[in-house]
Amino acid sequence: MSIQHFRVALIPFFAAFCLPVFAHPETLVKVKDAEDQLGARVGYIELDLNSGKILESFRPEERFPMMSTFKVLLCGAVLSRVDAGQEQLGRRIHYSQNDLVKYSPVTEKHLTDGMTVRELCSAAITMSDNTAANLLLTTIGGPKELTAFLHNMGDHVTRLDRWEPELNEAIPNDERDTTMPAAMATTLRKLLTGELLTLASRQQLIDWMEADKVAGPLLRSALPAGWFIADKSGASERGSRGIIAALGPDGKPSRIVVIYTTGSQATMDERNRQIAEIGASLIKHW
Rank of each mutant, 00 (worst) to 15 (best):
A9E: 08
G251R: 09
T69H: 10
D207R: 13
K284L: 11
V101A: 03
D48G: 05
G43S: 03
A170P: 09
D231G: 04
V21G: 11
G43Q: 02
A200E: 15
V31G: 00
T186C: 14
L218C: 04
W286V: 00
I244C: 06
L55P: 03
P249D: 04
D212G: 07
M268T: 07
D177S: 01
M153D: 11
F58C: 06
V21D: 04
S68A: 00
V8S: 15
S240T: 07
G52R: 04
I11W: 15
R159L: 04
T198R: 09
I243R: 00
I244F: 01
F14S: 14
R176K: 09
H151L: 11
H24N: 09
M127K: 08
E169I: 08
P20Y: 05
G52N: 07
F22S: 14
L38E: 06
R241G: 03
S68G: 03
N168C: 04
L89N: 03
T262G: 08
P224G: 04
G226A: 07
N173S: 11
N173L: 10
P172Q: 11
L38Q: 06
P65C: 04
S80D: 09
G242V: 03
N152V: 11
I171T: 15
D250W: 08
K284Q: 15
A235V: 04
R202P: 15
A211C: 09
V101L: 07
Q97A: 15
L55I: 13
G242M: 00
M209L: 05
L150A: 08
I283A: 04
F64V: 04
G114S: 04
G90Y: 12
L136G: 00
V214G: 06
S80P: 01
T186Q: 13
L197M: 07
A40R: 03
G248R: 02
E210A: 13
T186G: 12
E62A: 06
W163T: 07
R273I: 09
T126I: 08
V106H: 06
N50A: 15
Q97M: 14
N98M: 13
R271S: 10
P12R: 06
K252L: 09
W286M: 04
R81D: 07
H94Y: 14
M180I: 12
R202T: 11
N152G: 14
G239F: 05
A225R: 13
S221H: 10
L218I: 04
K109Q: 14
M268C: 07
I3N: 13
L111I: 12
Q4V: 13
Q274L: 14
P143S: 02
S2G: 12
R63G: 02
T187E: 00
R202I: 05
R159H: 12
S264T: 13
Y260H: 03
M67R: 00
V42G: 12
Y44N: 01
M268Q: 07
